[in-house]
Write a protein that binds this DNA or RNA. Structure first.
Lengths: 211, 211
DNA sequence: ATACCACTGGGTGTTTCCTCCTATTTTTCC
DNA sequence: GGAAAAATAGGAGGAAACACCCAGTGGTAT
């Protein structure tokens, strides 16, 4: 009995690449591939995989919502994220949504097969570099990547900052005082652990909070 | 006589994906694949492809330098960029360095084959969306994406800005006066057509100038 | 009912940003 | 060798950012 694998990724090249990598593998078989969330959900109704390879950035539904949905409705499927996003934040975030593995798209066929095999057997799998980074964070007691929740208002203001608006402009547009805007700004700096607006933009982009 | 194709991309998944896409194609054959610039140059010494599929972001050499080198030393090779970067700037930039085609990694096998075929036959090929955007820029007489050259010093300072350094800090580190740093800043704003550092960072990231 | 938290607003002071000038020296290129 | 571009530096001024405070209000969860 082979391990049944399904892929959801909007890039044909990636799908074909994985197909080729798993081709003729003695223990793994590919049962279906999906270009987007809807297609995936349709496929899941026809046959259930043991392991689902899931991209984070896809048109329509976001990977984290999709992961949460699949985890809830098909708890027996083990989800492995397959992405280019190499920030520990995303690892934490996706594991919160029930995934069991996190693999980068730079992986080769041996890594891919090993990752699939180990999460099928019940272990978790995280890309080596990211695993080390997460471990380092824990040992170092760093909170930097353990991002606190960004509130609705903060997110709103973050977006406006990112579109090159100054604090006075934001205050005017939101009908609130300059002080309030600057308070929100400062809170964003604190929460993301950055020193200035440059860091804010970089970090927020890295975390997928903007753009 | 088939069209001889070579790939240079640091992601095994992408290489395998393209291999699979071109497998059994009646008119196209893959003669070698390379994971980085060095490996590519070594491969070129053994056999010459008609078309080279080249990634922009690779460890070590950057895609544009590599393209320029190959264009100069092997003018008979037609280079097609294969990348995720979907900004018109990169199209302009890579064509400046002698490439003949620009394809996004979201392409499917038909697009891939068509693109290879058309640049082999002497036409250029640009992803449809990017082609439209470029055309729009021309018709609209927009200069926004026609980014002037960023000088070495400006690049240096841009990197320091991106690492959250303030102007006084940069001045101190480079042993130049604050005025000079601020001049370079202003010039960067002008060249990238932005209003403040936020815009600078976003634009620079978009253009691949930083990170 | 009380404790928490998001959102709001204010004050005060320093630093940095950003713009608009001008101007000299050095490097690069044809 | 002469022109153009890049790098350097200065002043002057206003706007914005950033770092500290503090404090009231309204919702909500225990």
């Amino acid at each position: 009995m082979k391990i049944k694998v399904s892929i959801a990724d909007d890039h044909p090249i990636v799908i074909q690449g994985i197909e080729k990598m798993l081709d003729n593998h003695p223990l793994i078989e590919l049962i279906h591939t999906s270009k987007n969330g809807e297609s995936l959900l349709r496929n899941l109704k026809t046959a259930l995989p043991d392991v689902l390879l899931l991209d984070i950035q896809m048109p329509g539904q976001q990977g984290d919502e999709l992961a949460a949905y699949v985890t809830q409705h098909y708890p027996e499927i083990r989800i492995m994220v397959l992405t280019n996003m190499d920030h520990p934040f995303h690892v934490r975030n996706m594991f919160k949504h029930g995934v069991k593995g996190y693999l980068l798209k730079s992986a080769d066929k041996y890594e891919l097969a090993e990752a699939i095999d180990s999460i099928y057997k019940g272990s978790n799998y995280i890309d080596r570099l990211l695993r080390d980074q997460l471990l380092y964070e824990v040992l170092d007691n760093k909170k930097a990547h353990n991002i606190p929740t960004i509130t609705k208002r903060e997110k709103e203001i973050l977006d406006m900052i990112a579109s090159e608006m100054t604090s006075p402009q934001i205050a005017k547009k939101l009908f609130i005082s300059l002080s309030t805007v600057e308070n929100h700004r400062s809170n964003l700096f604190l929460k993301l652990g950055v020193k200035n607006v440059v860091g804010l933009i970089s970090k927020a982009a890295q975390l997928g909070l903007i753009k």
